[in-house]
């Protein structure tokens, strides 16, 4: 433990470079968000950028680059569980039966009954 806390971290140059990289990626996300990429590509690219940015933060700001062993194992374990959550949820939505009565514009405008169910603007249903 003490060996790790006394570990010498790199100088400010590395952090500055990572910070600038994070700012650039943020700018890229905003720029791409305005381009309205076709289909799901916008989401996919945004997620890819987010993964790169969080990797940078974890590796350098949280010092995983300098630390090994148990700390890396902990991160790897958490990633396994993130993959588990996302994987089984995506499997669910990918393998659901199509609805026998798919929602129409009329059914989408129905509001749930009960107190306080205020009418809400509803976008037109996709064809």
């Amino acid at each position: 433990m003490s060996a790790e806390t006394e570990h010498k971290h790199a100088g400010p140059g590395r952090y500055l470079a990572v910070w600038i990289a994070l700012l650039l990626f943020t700018a890229l996300t905003v720029a791409l968000g305005r381009m309205h990429l076709a289909g799901s590509w916008g989401l996919l690219v945004a997620l890819a950028i987010a993964v790169v940015k969080s990797t940078l933060v974890v590796l350098f700001f949280m010092h995983l680059w300098d630390h090994g062993g148990a700390n890396r194992l902990v991160l790897a374990t958490t990633l396994v569980f993130v993959a588990l959550l996302i994987g089984l949820v995506l499997l669910d939505s990918a393998t659901r039966f199509p609805l026998a009565n798919p929602p129409t514009e009329a059914t989408m405008r129905l509001m749930p009954p009960g107190p306080g169910a205020a009418p809400r603007a509803v976008p037109a249903a996709e064809p």
Binding site: L84, L88, D92, S93, A94, T95, R96, F97
Partner: peptide, 22 residues
């Protein structure tokens, strides 16, 4: 315990594939 949560969703519209796995 982390692999079982879908058994709460058997009648919630979860796919039958997921339901079987869970």
């Amino acid at each position: 315990g982390f692999f079982t949560w879908g058994h709460h969703l058997f009648t919630s519209g979860q796919s039958t594939v997921d339901a079987g796995i869970f």
